[in-house]
């Protein structure tokens, strides 16, 4: 069964949601962003902030609007919008990128490792989060909860062996899991066409059915997720859901993202496919909001993020003693752990 949502159009009942959504999308975009050189790029510490999700915000926002707090999400390193959507704060994410105490992992995780109670990270190893997601789904099933696990990965990770191992286990045991492939066309510096024999990622689940949806359209993403969630909760087993999107930036801060693709391609995607611009255009066309109202939302989002940037910069660096905390459960740690230099040894 293959369902395409490419040309999904908005339903009247969802219009009310979109006001909130456009703000969320704007906020998600403004996370460590190249759009805001004045706020961010001058500060050398932002160089640590890599693997951004610019132009892919519709996936995180659409996902969150169609699931409940009971549902579980786990993703790879392009995790910032998910962290905010799942109960985190912009300040918490930005502080984590800067490695500060107010960061959502208290400065220990950094860009790739951000968590909330129903968001299991933020994982730095390509594809490693997918079998973990299968475990999450098994726990949901074991506990008899009417909820789904969403394990996100990219077109690059889709070629990892453990992703296929997870597909097999999920189908074998009919786990309530949606494998969400964010196909942003590039796995680091290699395009999907140059890395995958089959670039229709939604068809790669063998006996698991798949859906492909436009990942640049917030309505398509939320509708597709809604459908997928209902599918898994109805006990039909796992589902593959591919979002076709685009990686606006390089893979990370060390990758300008222009050596393996043309600047024209990037500019074209931005000018024609930007999910925020697209949403704004639709809202205006349909008479849901005026340009002035949308600009006000945008302004509010920028102000929020600017404030968070300052809060993050003002946050203290982690305490030295926390170098040794959270390695083992308190009270079960070894008697001592070595430190940064010869004589620095921490005794528990």
């Amino acid at each position: 069964m293959l369902v395409h949502f490419h040309e999904s159009r908005v339903l009247p009942c969802r219009v009310a949601l979109l006001g909130v959504t456009v703000w969320s999308v704007s906020k998600a975009r403004l996370l460590p962003s190249r759009h805001r050189p004045g706020a961010c790029a001058r500060d050398a510490t932002w160089q640590r902030a890599d693997a951004l999700a610019a132009l892919q915000e519709a996936v995180a926002v659409g996902l969150e609007h169609s699931i409940t707090p009971e549902d579980l999400v786990i993703t790879a390193y392009r995790c910032h919008p998910f962290a905010v959507m799942r109960g985190g704060t912009v300040t918490g994410v930005l502080s984590e990128l800067l490695g500060r105490q107010d960061g959502m992992s208290h400065g220990k995780g950094g860009s790739m490792h951000i968590f909330t109670p129903n968001f299991f990270g933020g994982n730095g190893i390509v594809g490693a989060q997918v079998p973990v997601g299968a475990g999450l789904a098994f726990a949901l099933k074991y506990k008899g909860k009417a909820a789904s696990a969403f394990a996100l990965y990219g077109d690059g990770a889709s070629n990892q062996g453990q992703v296929f191992e997870s597909f097999n286990m999920a189908k074998l045991w009919d786990l309530p899991i949606v494998f969400v492939c964010e196909n942003n066309k590039y796995g680091m510096g290699t395009s999907a066409e140059r890395s995958s024999a089959n670039t229709e990622y939604f068809t790669r689940g063998d006996k698991i059915p798949g859906i492909q949806a436009n990942g640049m359209d917030i309505v398509a993403t939320s509708q597709a997720v809604k459908y997928a969630r209902e599918w898994t909760i109805a006990g039909k087993g796992p589902l593959l859901l591919e979002f076709v999107t685009y990686r606006y930036g390089g893979h990370s801060m060390s990758d300008p993202g222009t050596t393996y693709r043309t600047r024209e391609e990037v500019q074209r995607m931005r000018s024609t496919q930007d999910p925020i611009r697209g949403l704004q255009r639709n809202l205006e066309e349909w008479g849901v909001a005026t340009e002035a109202e949308l600009k006000a939302i945008d302004k509010e989002a920028k102000a929020t993020v600017d404030k968070s940037v300052e809060e993050a910069k003002a946050s203290a660096f982690p305490k030295e003693v926390d170098l040794w905390t959270d390695i083992y459960y308190k009270g079960t740690a070894p008697p001592f752990m070595r430190g940064r230099e010869r004589e620095e040894v921490h005794h528990y």
Partner: peptide, 28 residues
């Protein structure tokens, strides 16, 4: 068999699966 079950021959998958299960507070 819901509590004691066979897995496919996929060690990486088994470990990851167990980690997800344990992250949900279960004893894996």
């Amino acid at each position: 068999r819901e509590r004691v079950f066979n897995t496919p021959l996929s060690e990486q998958g088994i470990a990851g699966f167990g980690i997800g299960l344990a992250a949900m507070g279960q004893t894996a």
